[in-house]
Design a protein around this nucleic acid. Structure first.
Lengths: 228, 228
DNA sequence: AAGTGGTCTAGACCACGAA
DNA sequence: TCGTGGTCTAGACCACTTA
């Protein structure tokens, strides 16, 4: 019997061997099903998954082609800090550094597309691994969208965990970049001023409305890794 | 009629509404198919995709559960530098800075799991956007695995493009981090020494054998972004 | 031993999009 | 117009896992 996995690796093999070069059109699903001696649904699943992986490009009527420039995609897991730290066998500790309710500063209003006069909750938190600074968290929560946040003190629970429990499914944009440590960051993370720090920024929407913006600055040397 | 997309969003809706809380077990596929009035294959596809997305966890016999801590995954596209630059409407230019064949240094042997005495091709390249430095590339190619690389001069073609054409499918590990600019980096990227730079490192294997290791250092301010 | 998901089949209808 | 992929169906057998 032919399984969709076999078809996938056979197709990859033919592309690698050069039988189907860049931009080549593959035979139709019906044709391939006949060749492999299986049902069209089986071929469909194999080709669909390869298209998801960025190897193939499919269009109705014109057929299935080998992507000239394969879309390389890496999937990164975004863990909760607590899990990340504990997964490394270290003891996790959370601390709230600052908590304030205020009118959204201009840069944040622009960034999150907030209404003028929008009120936000600003939180600064620290995450420690075995008593060493691990991550600095600078978070802003839109109170218009999530008024319940104002009643939380976040003294013991990290905002990420609370948010995850409150709005488990949301649209997220994440980006990675580097920044130099300013005086405050250096003090909190225990590094030299000017040190190169890796950070992630996340914007979250729920039901089309802006919920939260966070900058997570990692201690020096931190890296995120993925395989594909 | 009920489509697998409708089922997906209905399931998400019920989880969001709290009907199926964390760790809750969903009804079996057969049961759900009866409820939705569709075939089991349709339910299967919906639940399988939600499991791929990290929302559900499925196990034979024990059933489908809502993940307590949803696995957040972000998919980043890894473009060729040329495409990235041109996609921003800038003119792309490539330059080879250095090319040398040598015995692999110890740190690289360890990192790539190379044989003792392994020979490698070391390349340093620059990528420019509108004549401004865009990315610094420090690449090592294992000549044992890819002897053909020694015959290439890489004067006009960037190694990434050549590698992609030569071994289109390979296993890749990528990681992101930050580093401070040393004198050489600062000169090449036109930034101050000590500036915080974002970089990606990629290790590639083909057929289980190490092929290449590359560090791509971006100009100051660069970020990579993904949605999920 | 038994229930659950994993997969395949053979057939069907439909939507898109290039000619 | 009409060929291609997209999806659904009803049924089947199997593999895994837990009780």
């Amino acid at each position: 019997m032919t399984t969709f996995r076999q078809i996938k690796s056979d197709v990859i093999g033919r592309i690698t061997a050069g039988e189907w070069g860049p931009d080549a059109t593959l035979p139709s699903e019906t044709e391939l099903a006949a060749r492999y001696g299986c049902a069209r649904a089986t071929v469909n699943r194999a080709l669909r998954e390869l298209a998801d992986d960025g190897v193939l490009e499919r269009r109705r009527k014109s057929g299935t082609r080998v992507r000239a420039a394969p879309v390389r995609q890496a999937r990164f897991e975004i863990p909760l800090v607590r899990r990340e730290v504990e997964g490394q066998g270290a003891a996790y500790r959370y601390a709230l550094v600052e908590r304030a309710v205020m009118a959204a500063p201009d840069w944040l209003r622009a960034r999150m597309a907030l209404e003028p006069e929008a009120r936000v909750l600003h939180l600064v938190c620290m995450h420690y691994a075995n008593a060493s600074p691990y991550q600095y968290e600078d978070r802003w929560i839109a109170l218009d969208t999530l008024p319940a946040a104002e009643a939380e003190d976040f003294a013991a629970t990290a905002p990420t965990a609370w948010l995850l429990a409150t709005i488990p499914f949301s649209q997220v944009e994440i980006s990675f970049a580097a920044t130099e440590a300013d005086a405050a960051l250096a003090a909190h993370l225990g590094c030299a001023e000017g040190a190169a720090l890796f950070f992630a920024e996340r914007s979250t929407w729920f039901d089309g409305k802006p919920v939260t913006f966070v900058r997570l600055v990692h201690r020096p040397g931190h890296r995120v890794t993925a395989r594909y």
